[in-house]
Design a protein around this nucleic acid. Structure first.
Lengths: 203, 203
DNA sequence: GTCTATAACGGGATAGAC
DNA sequence: GTCTATCCCGTTATAGAC
């Protein structure tokens, strides 16, 4: 396994699939199309990946690997809460801005099999809370911030970060923006989200 | 068109489809299954609705009709900003809690054809801003609230309301909750969201 | 282990008879 | 308006060559 030749085909397939997914949307790309464009026999698709679903997951895992690790680390260090939130929000939005496949993928799996989604390793990367919740609780107990349910706060933070990317086409249409303008709106959410979160914690 | 009989068939199909969609998830229900369970020939499906997609949209339009109108009205009355936000948040979360089909549907269309989603009337119901944005601007100018971008604020509000329902399975799994407990968590977001939004506006 | 060819399956959509 | 038969396409499964 993993001979030079085989792996090249494998990568070629993932690469091609990735491009097509971005260009046309995950659900509008078929395996035949991917195989053809990659110049690979259809059956190889099934040999390397067992299904389109699995191919999707592997692409996702690959693209989220370093970014996800970095994001998780931000929450798990022992920096002050305020700084942590700022770094997390800014970094997360930056990551989402740079990889157009992340949010569609998350939506796709949630949409597909909501019950099984939690099973995926890749998803945990985007939803991680342990250390962070504890820290909030500590700060509340110390009286440094307003009393707040840590889980609710985390859910809110993630919502503020992720959802706008999901409804991007809607917002874009509503405001009549071009692509670059829309990208700018999303990026400028960094400050907006950070400030909203901090305001809700301030006593 | 619209003979008593024909309309009965139509409604029977929509009703059956609705039940199945809720029970198994939109993507795991086929048109054949719907037709069979409704005791209707498959092709009638396509006669009344041109596609599964369209069937889906019509079901959605029907179920969102009154709720959507009520939600839109809240934003368009001339109540004070604070009260408006409170009513909107509370009502919206209540609506989402009561109709298990709404969020999956929204995700489904966003996911399917992001570009074409804005075209749908039904979607506008869930994303509506005109009057609300103006009011915020006015309040800012009057100096009653902190300077804030109205569009960003609205996007945030919608994100805080909707997204948690989208990632419900994830949260449920993470926190190890039963169905009723999870429902309670979502409902208790009413206060949490409202307070977060207000805090971010307070000078 | 890598690859080809091909068939079977399943689901959505359609043409056309009645 | 209703139904039968059929088509198309994506996906999956199998048999086997190199």
């Amino acid at each position: 396994m993993d001979s030079k030749q085989g792996n090249a085909t494998r990568l070629k397939l993932m690469e091609t699939a990735r491009e097509l997914f971005i260009a046309k949307g995950v659900d509008r790309v078929g395996v035949r199309e991917i195989a053809t464009k990659a110049g690979v026999n259809l059956s190889l698709m099934n040999y390397y990946f067992q299904s389109k679903e699995n191919l999707l997951e592997q692409i996702f895992e690959t693209s989220i690997k370093e970014d996800g690790q970095r994001l998780r680390q931000i929450l798990n260090t022992d920096k002050p809460l305020e700084q942590k939130i700022k770094e997390y929000v800014y970094e997360y939005i930056e990551v989402l801005s740079n990889d157009p496949l992340l949010v569609p993928f998350v939506l796709s799996i949630i949409n597909r099999n909501a019950e099984q989604a939690p099973r995926l390793k890749s998803v945990h990367t985007l939803y991680n809370t342990e250390a962070f919740s504890k820290q909030i609780k500590t700060e509340v107990d110390k009286g440094n911030i307003k009393p707040v349910d840590p889980e609710q706060f985390y859910i809110s933070m993630v919502s503020l970060i992720l959802f706008p990317f999901a409804i991007k086409p809607l917002v874009k249409y509503r405001l009549g923006l071009a692509d670059e303008e829309m990208a700018k709106v999303l990026k400028s959410r960094k400050e907006h989200v950070y400030e909203m979160l901090m305001a809700s914690l301030k006593k």
